[in-house]
Design a protein around this nucleic acid. Structure first.
Lengths: 196, 196
DNA sequence: GGAAGTACTTGACCTATGGTAAGAAATGCA
DNA sequence: TGCATTTCTTACCATAGGTCAAGTACTTCC
């Protein structure tokens, strides 16, 4: 699995094999069972997780005890509390495992060292931030305007490959609606003879 | 006003006076009246606006013709369609002037040139992206969970200095509620003897 | 293989927010 | 100064989505 991570880094960030080996000691492999909590609110998130296999999610818990899912991460995705990771603030997010997973995590120092080593890596990282912003902006736009149905349809289109691996209640949480509402939306779609 | 911009750049980005003068030809001053549209959906947003004075906003318009405000920008803030700016995609946002303004705009090339010139500038830019992500994450969290009242209270706290300059209907649009709802929320708060 | 938990659906009811329309207040403009 | 326009509020009804409670699958795990 470390090979998969290495391949990802070399293919995507512009680091050479040699540069990568200099950083290898900052890379850790972790095998985790469903339910494992990798980050809790108020901890400092000083590592970023890369999913080799399985699925993680990040979420908040409000005063009523309700979960609000911020992100899912499956194969070849990163997940972290970026605020905490970059600003050394207490995390606002929880991160846990929703499908048995193999993850690689890197310490903050990996990023710093990699950026020092290679301008290409810095550019890769900036690009990742920009992509993240683009995605979040789209989501904000949906949350401002769209109905439950529209949000759901957009979700299954955008996340087609992983939709079937995510429990419906978690999709509901991601969309900001209740599982009951989602169930009703899906029933209505079925009535209208909608096929994903 | 160009002086104000120069001061901002030198104080915040780590560019030296000399480095700045090398880029000065990529900086443009613009005086704009309330109502002026600076960016329309589907245009390529190849410039970023820095507000010296006055106020701008970015927003989308949905199929029903409704506005959804993404961001306000007053003195010393930036505004642009980042997706379009960085990825050369057609913009999803409109940007217009909601209070007579003096703005500086820089072409994309300014960023590229500045990053080449100074590693500090690149770091400043990355930091700006990270701050943006932090802010958006907070907003997503509010949109997922909070009531109209809570969103409003958070808004006036977060944007205390500019709240009084923004029409209520625009605040409503930013929060994803109708002006009527906001009016009701405010009435209820007044009844509870709430003072901002 | 059966108990216990988890996930999903359904129905009845409720509430916050939306829609519409109209009036009041504030602002801009001539 | 006063008319026109925009902004904000109010009142009324409509509705999407939330809440609660129960019922029916599915999993999981001893």
């Amino acid at each position: 699995m470390l090979e998969q991570f290495k391949k990802y880094i070399i293919d995507n960030t512009g680091l050479s094999e040699n540069e990568y080996s200099e950083l290898e000691h900052l890379v850790y492999l972790l095998e985790v069972k469903k339910g494992t909590v990798l980050l809790k609110e108020n901890q400092i998130c000083n590592r970023a997780f890369f999913v080799c296999k399985g699925m993680l999610r990040s979420y908040t818990i409000d005063e009523m005890g309700k979960n609000h899912i911020i992100q899912f991460a499956s194969e070849n995705w990163w997940i972290a509390d970026r605020s905490s990771f970059y600003f050394d603030e207490p995390a606002e997010l929880f991160i846990d495992v929703i499908e048995d997973a193999v993850v690689v995590y890197i310490h903050k120092d990996f990023i710093k060292a990699a950026e020092k080593l290679s301008g290409k890596f810095a550019r890769f990282n900036t690009l990742a931030l920009q992509k993240n912003i683009r995605q979040m902006q789209k989501r904000i736009n949906y949350l401002l305007a769209a109905s439950a149905e529209k949000k759901y349809l957009d979700f299954i289109e955008t996340y087609r490959e992983i939709t079937c691996r995510i429990p419906l209640q978690m999709i509901a949480s991601y969309l900001g609606i209740t599982p009951e509402s989602l169930s009703r939306v899906r029933k209505e779609l079925a009535r209208k003879n909608f096929k994903p």
